[in-house]
Design a protein around this nucleic acid. Structure first.
Lengths: 229, 229
DNA sequence: TATATTAGACAGTACAGCTACCCAATATCC
DNA sequence: GGATATTGGGTAGCTGTACTGTCTAATATA
């Protein structure tokens, strides 16, 4: 297909596709002539992935490129290698670590302690480390007397979440497919997970403190446990 | 204190403080004369909160204002009221819902089913609903055959997370303090929770598929369960 | 009284993410 | 085979966000 059909099928404007091509987010089509190129389903798929990362997830174009580059490069044969790369990517947008190209591991004493307490094995280069230390610092500067110990219960829940994530990769055999699925689970799912927390917070707040102001009629005598009505 | 001391103590440039005042993120100081105003610790605190939301969390200035407005307005006496407002705020930045001022509830059939299955009680106006439906749609458009049922295990973990969150509010009595703490837990903690997931994913990937490429030496014979070494 | 600081207003800057336009080459329709 | 439309490639411009710098008159401080 040519660019206009790609545009029509993806809903992304022609000019924007060209922009993504220029920025290297979308690989160039197979050139059939000097002013003609042929695109295929892989381009359509990639385009949708780009829009998922920049749209619902809110990544910057540069961050999306970084993520996309990760699943494209390197040898795709080692599952653990590919996944390690994906999980190690940090979209340098919101809350990015200082070191742009995380070559140098930054001291993260609190995360070290947490990782040790959880018995985890994670690369010292994983940028997620810095996010945790920086967040704890920020919370303390706002008077919240938190340290890594207060994150332990959250870490336990994060471990279970990660297990759910990895379970969904088991069914896939193709390493490339696995890498793309990992990206979807890791990045695109993030807003939904936070949305679930928000819903659960509202429910829990109603259970503990009373009815929500936005709701007119609630069933009385709500439970504390989790069984359904 | 005057603006320069506020700037020095917060680390935020003078001009930026004026910008926040203009934008209404920071309440004006008590004017002592036509070209003089007095700021206090509440301003310093608010300024730090603004930087936490826009910095580590990555909210836009407009989204931060929306969050800040929520804890400032309304009567502060009802705990459930205040928390309902905070948990209902969606920072219109990344993955914002379409309706800017969520007055009209949007149809979210998948979230409805999920909420029902969990036995939750949440406002139909909570913007988190739309995020979930939109994310599921996006994942499906990328070939992931997901529906609300696949989110159920995540919802269960979200419920536990919410319980941890609310536990940390129990100790506070002042409703205003409670609201601010809720903001910190809900928004500022988000990147850290996602970072924890990333670390747990890397660990779980090593446990299942082998060693991480970034790590030179690992202890052999890793476990599947969660006990510490 | 001299110097520095301040509030308030507004213009200017830097960057991101598109968007519009141009041109020569190519495809397509008659 | 000629007219018309589309394409790739490049560049310039536009819009919005988050500041930053400058100016002025009023006020504080030495």
């Amino acid at each position: 297909m040519r660019i206009s059909e790609l545009s029509r099928r993806s809903g992304v404007p022609n000019a924007t596709i060209k922009y993504y091509l220029r920025e290297g987010l979308l690989p160039p089509g197979r050139a059939t002539a000097q002013t003609q190129a042929e695109y295929d389903d892989s381009h359509l798929r990639r385009l949708r992935l780009i829009r998922a990362l920049t749209g619902v997830r809110g990544l910057s174009v540069a961050a999306a490129k970084q993520v996309l580059d990760t699943i494209a490069e390197e040898d795709q044969t080692d599952t653990h290698h590919v996944l390690g790369l994906v999980f190690g990517v940090w979209p340098s947008g919101s809350s990015k670590p200082e070191t742009a190209d995380g070559q140098v591991p930054v001291e993260c004493p609190e995360t070290d302690a947490l990782v040790d307490a959880m018995g985890w094995t994670v690369s010292t280069y994983n940028p997620a480390r810095q996010v945790i230390d920086r967040t704890l610092e920020t919370l303390r500067s706002l008077g919240m007397e938190q340290d890594w110990r207060s994150l332990l219960p959250y870490a336990e829940l994060a471990a279970r979440t990660a297990r759910l994530d990895l379970d969904q990769l088991e069914t896939l055999k193709d390493p490339l497919e696995k890498a793309e699925r990992a990206v979807l689970l890791t990045f695109v799912l993030e807003p939904a997970l936070m949305a679930l927390r928000r819903l659960a917070q509202e429910d829990e707040s109603i259970v503990r403190y009373g009815e929500s102001p936005s709701l007119a009629a609630l069933q009385p005598g709500r439970r504390r446990a989790d069984e359904h009505e």
